[in-house]
Computed example of a mutant assay.
Amino acid sequence: MKVTVNHKSYVLDEACSVEQMLSVVLQNEAKGIAVAINQNIISKSYWSSQLLQEGDQVLLIKATQGG
């Protein structure tokens, strides 16, 4: 299945959850990350159960410090 994450294409296994996608894309622990799929914010409590669909547009936003 092909999805786009921050304007970059990835091929993932079918029935891939947000949590599984993050481990593939980030290749480390997902701390301080917000996730939106097709412009809808996904609460962290749903990352393990929210399945991605073919063609989904995913946006990852990393929190930063500073002012």
Results as ranks from 00 to 15, higher is better:
Gly32His: 07
Val25Thr: 06
Ala15Phe: 13
Leu60Ser: 13
Ser48Trp: 02
Leu22Pro: 01
Ala63Gly: 08
Thr64Ile: 12
Gln39His: 10
Leu26Cys: 09
Gly55Lys: 05
Ile37Thr: 10
Asp13Leu: 07
Leu22Ile: 04
Leu52Gly: 00
Leu59Glu: 11
Asn6Asp: 04
Asn38Met: 12
Leu59Cys: 07
Ser23Met: 15
Leu26Asn: 06
Ser9Cys: 06
Ile42Tyr: 13
Leu51Thr: 06
Val18Thr: 08
Lys31Tyr: 11
Val5Asn: 02
Ser48Val: 06
Leu26Gln: 07
Val25Arg: 05
Ile33Asn: 03
Glu19Arg: 10
Ile41Phe: 15
Leu51Val: 09
Thr64Val: 14
Thr64Cys: 15
Met21Lys: 06
Val5Met: 08
Val11Gly: 02
Ala15Leu: 13
Asn38Gln: 10
Ala63Leu: 15
Leu59Tyr: 02
Ser9Ala: 11
Val58Gln: 08
Trp47Asn: 03
Asn38Val: 14
Ala30Phe: 00
Gln50Glu: 10
Lys62Phe: 11
Ser9Asn: 11
Asp56Thr: 13
Glu19Leu: 11
Ala36Tyr: 15
Ala30Met: 02
Gly32Gln: 04
Lys44Met: 15
Ala34Glu: 05
Ser17Asn: 09
Glu19Pro: 01
Val3Arg: 00
Val24Pro: 04
Val11Trp: 00
Gly66Gln: 06
Leu22His: 02
Ile37His: 04
Lys31Asp: 11
Ser45Gly: 09
Gln57Cys: 13
Val58Cys: 12
Lys62Asp: 06
Gly67Ile: 14
Ala15His: 14
Thr4Tyr: 00
Ile42Pro: 04
Gln50Cys: 10
Lys8Glu: 12
Trp47Ala: 02
Val35Asp: 02
Ile37Tyr: 02
Glu29Lys: 09
Trp47Arg: 06
Gly55Val: 05
Ser49Glu: 13
Met1Phe: 08
Val24Ala: 03
Gln50Leu: 07
Ile33Leu: 09
Gln27Cys: 12
Val24Asn: 04
Val5Pro: 01
Leu60Val: 08
Tyr46Met: 14
Tyr10Met: 03
Asn38Glu: 07
Asn6Thr: 07
Val11Glu: 10
Ala63Glu: 09
Leu59Val: 08
Ala15Gln: 15
Ala36Glu: 11
Lys31Ser: 11
Leu52Lys: 01
Gln50Met: 11
Asn38Ala: 14
Gly67Glu: 12
Ile41His: 15
Gly55Asp: 05
Leu51Gly: 02
Met21Gln: 05
Ala34Met: 10
Val25Ser: 02
Ser45Pro: 03
Val24Asp: 05
Lys62Trp: 04
Ile42Asp: 07
Glu29Pro: 03
Ala36Cys: 11
Gly55Asn: 13
Asp56Asn: 11
Met1Tyr: 02
Glu29Tyr: 04
His7Asn: 09
Asn28Cys: 08
Glu14Tyr: 04
Lys8Phe: 05
Gly66Asp: 06
Asn40Ala: 12
Gln57Thr: 01
Asn40Thr: 07
Gln39Gly: 06
Tyr46Ile: 09
Ile61Ser: 15
Met21Thr: 03
Ile42Arg: 10
Ala30Thr: 00
Ser45Leu: 11
Ser17Ile: 04
Val18Gly: 03
Asn40Tyr: 10
His7Glu: 10
Glu54Tyr: 05
Glu29Met: 03
Ile33Tyr: 10
Leu12Thr: 02
Ile42Met: 14
Glu19Lys: 10
Asn28Ala: 09
Lys62Arg: 14
Lys62Ser: 13
Val58His: 05
Gly67Pro: 09
Leu59Thr: 06
Leu51Gln: 07
Thr4Ile: 11
Cys16Glu: 00
Val5Arg: 01
Lys44Asn: 13
